[in-house]
Structure formats: structure tokens, C-alpha cells
Design a protein around this nucleic acid. Structure first.
Length: 719
DNA sequence: CCCGTTGCGG
């Protein structure tokens, strides 16, 4: 990061100048300026333009050097004029080192020379060098021009160095560039990229003249700051002022549409591009793919993608990440292969998407080979490392996750949080705590996310005392204001431990409005512990908040069933039917011999169905012999007990387990991935199965892991 | 008098 300009501050400089009533002085004389060298030269030597033309025509090293020599001979070099052109011609042939060498020995350096050098560094993306030269230039008393300020501001934007940027902007205004569109749009971009859209709009509204670039900056600024509605408003305002968009403007709008998820608007943006016959380059088309993918319309995204005459890795990445983000892990992974078949090398983004896809479906084998690919092909950085940690832990390989965690040498709080979360979901609350304590010994500060990870780890392990202790210390010592997420963890922790009264008190003490999630957590705890007094209230609260998740209604209905309030069960069922919410079909996945197999509830279509049923039948008898009693309360239909018991056997995880047992060698660990929470009966049954077949079965449900071995589950039946 | 300078994709 750029340290400091070490320059005297312009007058009235303070934070965002307009916010504090800053009034720029036009053409101020408060800084002693030497006249620029090119200015003096014009009156003393002939034919400067011929030399410039010559320099501009230079195409290679030879002609540049020749002209350079000519300048030295004629004495032009000594007098300083045209040196900007000389530097620029070295830059043009890509020889920045020579350009800098010339620059350093110039007897007189006019603003053109400085600009040429600064622009060269800007193009090569050396923002720190740009700012160094800029400040040196000011100190030497050379008068910067519009380009100088524009490029210097761009450098600050790259570094996200708002403070330096504002300082430069103030100076630009003092030098008379307040209404320069180039300087102005650079300032807008600086604010936009630093996430200060309110300041940007303040500057924007004061601009007397705005070009298309200014509008684009505002539109994409709003889009990228998560304010898509304002981005669209900005575009409408622009049209009202008689401007038409170009491709770049539309890219900003596609981002806004992607975030809004408004298909109609998305289609109209696409339509605008076609109607106005704007050039559809790779960038525009890729942003359309991304827009449709973010809207969840993968078909449209694919359609645009397929019709792209020219694709690149970014286009592929947009589609792959679209599939992965929308939960279509298989499509994402297939696309990654297809991309390679088409001769494109997966890059960071497509690989992270692939990891995400593997994580979603618990495809450890493919995740591992993706990890291998990353290690071989790319530098293994912190971001990728954290993604791989997440993948391993969510694919059940906690110890591998830890090994990798130890290998990351400059961990940020995201890496720590990922590892703490990993211990949490595997039910290792104590390890999560000791890792947290280790983190506090570094100079990283635990933030709200760290405490979310820690508290949820406690809740998965039922560590009530620890939870209360650290919740209090989070507020008092670490000054992290508790968010709803933290409250949910605490309510969950207390309520599941049966301390529903304390959970209630905690909800009452919340500053913010208590949302749906805390009441759901409370209700779940009441349901588990048969606390019908507080449960009644929690159930009412939950229903009042009109949840749109069918799972929540199932919880309420389960609760009423447990409380034997059949009328209420019926009325909740009625709501569920009326709202027409689709039940998410439960499925289970199991990896066998490097392939992932999926099972739906009561799925009889599998070619091994016969064998699986036989095995389950056999296991059912053996389980009953050693004490298994089917818990039919988990089947919600009003059916005969016998039918209910049969249905339990057809739960998807039983099918997956049967398939896994039949197709793997004795003693192999099975990993089952579920998209819902594991049902209580299956949990019991699996414990018995591990005893009978002498295997370890790991089940990942939507919330956490269950490592089941010898009839005992790592969750301690606490989930 | 001219030139260089500002906004876009996973």
C-alpha cells in the first residue's frame, strides 16, 4: 500500500471536501511554480513539432534511438522540450526501463515528460510508482495537468487509497481542474470503488458536464455496491438527459439485473443491446451470461453462451460459477471438463467454482483431485487455501483440512473462521475453542463472523457454559455487537439443552426486532424437550411471521403433534397445502469407487434395488433383535403404523447406506450426504447398522456431521 | 496547435 504523499496539504483539506463545505480556489497562486520547460523552449528553438512528429513515428528501438541521438546532437534534449515525446516513444515500444533511464537524466523535465512516465507506469499497473512520481513532480514545482491528476487518481483507485485520492483531488481543484470531465470521472470511480457511493453522487451532482464515462462509473458503481435499483435509476436519468448507452453502460446494468434477479428487466437490457445494435463483444456477452445465471435462468445463460462467437476463460467461468452457485454441481463439473476439452485452462475462478460444486455434493474424490490440479498449476494462495479447507471439511475429511490450514503461512481471519467452523460442524466444540484461543494470540482480531463460527460450534456440541461465557466476553471485551445470528446460536444452544426460559429471556433482551430464526430455534428446543408452555408461544410467533420455508411448517406441525394438539397439526397442514409450497424432495448421496450415486426417498428405480431391499430387510431384523424400535413419529402422514415403518426403511439415506455397504469392501468408511436434516429414526437405525456391519458411517446433513461408529454418534444425540 | 489521461465481464 502507498504510505503517504508527504506533501503539504492543499487549503481546507479535510476528508470528503464537499461534505465539509470545501470551495476550490481557481488557479491558485499559493504554490510557487516553475514554468514548464516546453513553454520556455517554444520561443527559443525552431521546429519542435518536426521532432515530435518524428518521435511519434518511431516504431522500433532503432528509430527511437536514432531520434534520441538527433536530439542530443541538436541540443534539443538539453533544453528539455520534446522529451515527453521521447519518453512516450520508448514507452510505445515497451521499453519502460530505457524510458525511465532517459527520464532520470533529463536536464529539464516538462509536464509532458512526467506524464509520459506516469502514464507508462499506470499502464503497467504500478500504482505506487505513479504516486511516487506524482508527488516528486509536485515537490519539484512542476504544474500538473488534467492527465497527471487523472492518472494519479486512477492509481489511488487501484490501491483503494481514498485518503491520498482525496488529497490529489483537492489539489486538482486548486489547479483549476474542478470541472474537468477526466478528473471528475476518476474521482467518481475512486469513490465508487471505495464503496462510497453517497460521496460519489455528491460529486456527480455538482458536475456541470458529464460524459458517458461519468454515467457508466455511477451506474456500475451502484451495481457493484449492492444498490442495483439506484443503478437502474441512474440509467433512466441518463436517458432523460438525452444520452444513449453503449456496451460498457449495459455491462453495468447487467450486473444490477443479476443482483436484482428481475428477469423482465434483464430481458429488457438484453433487448436494448440488440435494438440499438450495440457491438456485442466478449465482455458484454459474458456479462449477459452472468446476469442470466445469477437470475437462476441457466437455460438462457447457456443460450447466450452457446451463441458466443468468441469465448474466453472468463466466459466459461461465468457459466460454471452460475451452475455451482445455483446448486447444479454436476453441470458445473461437466462444464469444467468441457472447457478443458475446448482447450481452455481452468483458472482460479473456475476452479473455486469446481471446489464449491464438490463441496455441495460431498464429492471428496473429485475435490481432492481438484486440489491436486490447483497445487500443480497455480500458486496456492490464501483464498484458494481457504476454499480447499472448506471443501475437505465439508466432504468429511477434517484432518486434511487441518493439515492444509497449518500450511497456509499468512492466514487471515477468513482462514481461521473456516477452520473454526470446520471443527464446529464436526462436533468438536472444544477444538474449535482452542483454535479460537490460538487465534487471539495472533494480531488478528476476532470479528462477528469468528464469533458466529465459535458460538455455532458450541451449539453443535452442546457446550452451554462455554457459549454463555464467550457470548458475554464477545460483547464486553471484544466489543462485537451481537447480531441476530449470534442470538440464534445462543437461543439454539440454551433451548436444546432444555433451558428454554433462559432462551426466552435472551430473546427479550435483544435490541433488534427478534426475527423468524430465533423463534424457530426456540421452538425446535421446546419440541425436543417437551416444553409446551413456551413452545406454544414460539409456535404462534413463528406462524405469525409467515415463513416461506416448508421445513419450518413441518417443525411447527411436529411440535403440535408432540404436544398432541391434533387440531393445530391439521391447521398447519392446511396452510402448507394452501400456500402451494413445494416440498424439497429429500435425497442422499454416496460416493462409491470415485462415482457419486444419488438416492431419492422410496426410489425403486435403481438397478440394484432388489439387493438393497434384501439387505435392508435383513438389517431390519437384526436391528430389532438388538433393541431397535422404529420411531414412527417421523412419518407425518396419517397411515397405519406398519406402513409407516415400511416408509422409514425407504428413506433415502437407508437406500444410500445399503448401496454403499453392497458396493464397498468390508471396513470401508461410508460418507452419506443429505440435503435435509437427518431424521431421528434414521439416526437411530444407522447407529444399530454400524454395530451390525462393523463400519464407520459418516452422515453429513444440512447442518452438521454425524460420525457414527459402534452404535455411537459423535453428535452425542445432541442435534 | 497537437498529444497523452477517465468507465466494462466470472
Amino acid at each position: 500500500m502507498f504510505k503517504s504523499l508527504k506533501l503539504p496539504l492543499p487549503s481546507n483539506f479535510f476528508c470528503c471536501p464537499f461534505a465539509y463545505g470545501y470551495k476550490p480556489k481557481l488557479y491558485s497562486n499559493n504554490i510557487e511554480l516553475r514554468k514548464s520547460a516546453s513553454y520556455t523552449y517554444m520561443h527559443s528553438l525552431p521546429c519542435p513539432n518536426r521532432l515530435r512528429a518524428l518521435l511519434l513515428a518511431c516504431k522500433d528501438k532503432a528509430s527511437t534511438s536514432k531520434t534520441h541521438a538527433l536530439m542530443l546532437l541538436t541540443g534539443l534534449f538539453k533544453h528539455g522540450n520534446s522529451n515527453g515525446g521521447l519518453i512516450a516513444s520508448y514507452v510505445k515500444i515497451g521499453d519502460i526501463k530505457s524510458a525511465r533511464k532517459v527520464f532520470d537524466v533529463l536536464p529539464q523535465r516538462g509536464v509532458d515528460a512526467w506524464n509520459a512516465m506516469i502514464i507508462a507506469y499506470s499502464r503497467k499497473e504500478y500504482p505506487v510508482e505513479v504516486l511516487n512520481l506524482y508527488s516528486q513532480m509536485i515537490l519539484e514545482g512542476v504544474r500538473p495537468d488534467s492527465s497527471t491528476f487523472t492518472v494519479a487518481l486512477k492509481a489511488c483507485t487501484r490501491l483503494l487509497d481514498l485518503k491520498t485520492g482525496e488529497e490529489i483531488w483537492c489539489r486538482a481543484m486548486d489547479f483549476g481542474f474542478e470541472y474537468d470531465v477526466f478528473v471528475g470521472s476518476s474521482v467518481l470511480n475512486l469513490y465508487a470503488k471505495c464503496g462510497k457511493m453517497d460521496e460519489a453522487i455528491m460529486v456527480f451532482d455538482r458536475m456541470p458536464r458529464r460524459d458517458l464515462v461519468c454515467w457508466t462509473t455511477m451506474i456500475s458503481g451502484f451495481a457493484q455496491s449492492g444498490r442495483p435499483i439506484e443503478a437502474v435509476d441512474m440509467f433512466r436519468r441518463m436517458q432523460k438527459e438525452g444520452m444513449e448507452g453503449d456496451g460498457v453502460v449495459m455491462v453495468g446494468l447487467t450486473q444490477a439485473c443479476g443482483n436484482l434477479g428481475d428477469l423482465k428487466l434483464s430481458l429488457s437490457v438484453h433487448g436494448y443491446l440488440i435494438r440499438k445494435d450495440l457491438p456485442m463483444d466478449v465482455v458484454v456477452q459474458t456479462s449477459l451470461v452472468d446476469m442470466y445465471a445469477k437470475n437462476g435462468h441457466l437455460k438462457l445463460a447457456c443460450h447466450v453462451f452457446k451463441n458466443m462467437p468468441c469465448k474466453n476463460v472468463i466466459s466459461w467461468g461465468a457459466l460454471i460459477s452460475g451452475f455451482a452457485q445455483n446448486g447444479f454441481a454436476g453441470n458445473a463439473l461437466n462444464l469444467l471438463v468441457e472447457m478443458q476439452d475446448c482447450g481452455y485452462r481452468p483458472d482460479l475462478v473456475s476452479l473455486v467454482s469446481a471446489l464449491l460444486a464438490c463441496t455441495q455434493v460431498g464429492f471428496l474424490k473429485l475435490g481432492k483431485s481438484t486440489h491436486g490440479y490447483i497445487v500443480r498449476r497455480l500458486a496456492f494462495d490464501r483464498v484458494l487455501g481457504t476454499a480447499v479447507i472448506d471443501m475437505y471439511s465439508k466432504c468429511g475429511a477434517l484432518s486434511w483440512a487441518r493439515t492444509l490450514f497449518d500450511q497456509i503461512n499468512s492466514k487471515d481471519s477468513i482462514s481461521w473462521n473456516a477452520m473454526i467452523t470446520s471443527y464446529g460442524i464436526h462436533g468438536h466444540g472444544k477444538e474449535a475453542l482452542s483454535l479460537f484461543l490460538e487465534m487471539t494470540k495472533t494480531n488478528l482480531k476476532p470479528d462477528h463472523a469468528t464469533f458466529s463460527s465459535l458460538l455455532s460450534a458450541f451449539s453443535h456440541s452442546g457446550l452451554v457454559e462455554e457459549g454463555q461465557y464467550w457470548f458475554n466476553r464477545m460483547v464486553s471485551e471484544y466489543k462485537v455487537p451481537p447480531t441476530e445470528k449470534h442470538y440464534v446460536c445462543m437461543v439454539d444452544l440454551l433451548a436444546r439443552a432444555g433451558r428454554v426460559e433462559e432462551a426466552c429471556e435472551l430473546i427479550d433482551s435483544m435490541n433488534a426486532e427478534s426475527g423468524l430464526a430465533v423463534w424457530v430455534a426456540l421452538l425446535a428446543g421446546c419440541c425436543k424437550n417437551g416444553k409446551f408452555l413456551i413452545g406454544e408461544m414460539a409456535a404462534k410467533k413463528v406462524l405469525e411471521l409467515n415463513p416461506d420455508d416448508l421445513g419450518i411448517y413441518s417443525l411447527v406441525s411436529n411440535y403440535y403433534a408432540k404436544a398432541r394438539k391434533w387440531d393445530d397439526v391439521a391447521s398447519v397442514r392446511k396452510i402448507m397445502k394452501k400456500t402451494g409450497m413445494k416440498k424439497v424432495p429429500g435425497y442422499s448421496l454416496v460416493e462409491v469407487k470415485g462415482k457419486l450415486h444419488a438416492f431419492l426417498m422410496e426410489d425403486k428405480s435403481h438397478h440394484q434395488n432388489e439387493n438393497m431391499m434384501q439387505l435392508l430387510d435383513k438389517l431390519d431384523h437384526e436391528m430389532r433383535a438388538i433393541g431397535y424400535v422404529p420411531q414412527t413419529e417421523f412419518v407425518l402422514h396419517s397411515l397405519d403404523e406398519e406402513v409407516k415403518e415400511k416408509m422409514l426403511c425407504n428413506h433415502s439415506e437407508r437406500l444410500a447406506i445399503a448401496f454403499g455397504l453392497l458396493n464397498t469392501g468390508p471396513g470401508t468408511r461410508l460418507l452419506i450426504i443429505k440435503n435435509l436434516r437427518v431424521c431421528g429414526d434414521c439416526h437411530e437405525a444407522t447407529k444399530f447398522i454400524t454395530k451390525i456391519v462393523n463400519r464407520e458411517i459418516v452422515v453429513r446433513d444440512v447442518k452438521r456431521f454425524h460420525h457414527i461408529k459402534n452404535g455411537i454418534c459423535s453428535c452425542g444425540d445432541y442435534w
